[in-house]
Simulated assay, not measured.
Amino acid sequence: MLTKNLFVFVFAAVISGCSIQNSIPVTYHKQPISGVKVDNTDSIGVTQWRDKRNIAGVKDKYSESAVIRMGGATIGMTHNGQKFVRVADFVRLNFIEELQSLGVNARTIEVMPASSDKELLANIAQNNNVKMVISADLMNFDFNCAGAWTLECTRSVSFSMSMVDKDGKEIITREVFDANMSNNEGMGVLHQTVLDQIANNVMREALKKAVIRTAQQLNAAKSVAETGLIASE
């Protein structure tokens, strides 16, 4: 059963000294990205993303699954039936689904390289029979509030992404894609509301920027390849 509201839950955990963990179901709802068309059908592999959020620096079983932590309280997400899903995996899988909805031939590669290591990424592409590899570091997936009864709340999502082809050519180099949302909330804001806002308002906007950039680069790569073929004839 969901706790009644975020702040009562956290306050109760802090004053009691208890460790309370709660994983809330979150569903990301894709929306069409207008004006974007991908003509390149080359295969794209998307590796696991490293979690570089400050909250993930607390090394325990919830370190990369926590969205909110205060005292002994931990709030995470349930996705596709999996409780306390890794936050970076949640972002990555929805990024892949956004690419696939545009017709991009994208799939997961279950390794976690340094996103800036172009030689390693090229080797991963070759070993997994894909033309290009995308890797990223999740920097923020956060919810922060300040105030008393009326709270000024900020939600933020950001990640640094790289894209390398199988020959080691850097196509996207550690570019940051981010989005923020700020508003006033009452003390009774629900966990479900907070997580839904992060996923379906803020994360969506950051993913949209990354998907558009990826689509542009895929189309540019196809254009370059076609120009090279014409020149060689």
Rank of each mutant, 00 (worst) to 15 (best):
G168K: 02
V111W: 03
E98Y: 10
V194M: 14
W149N: 13
E170Y: 06
I24N: 06
V189L: 09
V164A: 06
A215N: 04
G35H: 05
E205S: 08
L2H: 08
V46P: 00
V202M: 07
D89H: 07
F159S: 05
K166S: 06
G57K: 12
L207T: 01
D137N: 15
L218M: 07
A179C: 11
E170Q: 14
T227E: 11
L195W: 04
T27A: 14
M187Q: 07
I75E: 01
K166A: 06
A199I: 10
F90C: 01
M163T: 02
G168V: 05
K61I: 10
M139P: 01
T173G: 04
E152I: 06
S156V: 09
T27R: 13
I68Q: 03
R174C: 09
A114N: 15
V189H: 05
L138E: 05
S23D: 02
A12K: 13
I124Y: 03
I109V: 12
T214K: 00
G76A: 07
S34D: 12
K30V: 01
R86W: 03
G188F: 15
E175N: 14
D178V: 02
V87S: 02
W49H: 04
G186F: 14
A122L: 11
N105F: 03
I33D: 04
I171S: 05
E119N: 14
G186R: 12
D89P: 00
I44W: 00
I33N: 02
I212E: 09
A231H: 09
D137A: 11
A215G: 02
C145P: 02
Q216S: 09
S65M: 06
Q21G: 12
T74E: 10
A66Y: 00
E185S: 08
A88K: 03
V224Q: 08
G147V: 02
G103I: 08
I198L: 15
M181G: 10
S115R: 10
G186M: 13
F9L: 13
N129E: 08
G186K: 12
V36K: 03
N5T: 03
A12G: 10
N184W: 06
N201I: 12
L195H: 04
G72V: 09
W149G: 11
N128R: 01
I212L: 02
V8A: 12
I75N: 00
T154I: 10
D165G: 06
T3Y: 11
I68T: 04
N54P: 05
D42M: 09
E97W: 02
L2D: 11
P113I: 10
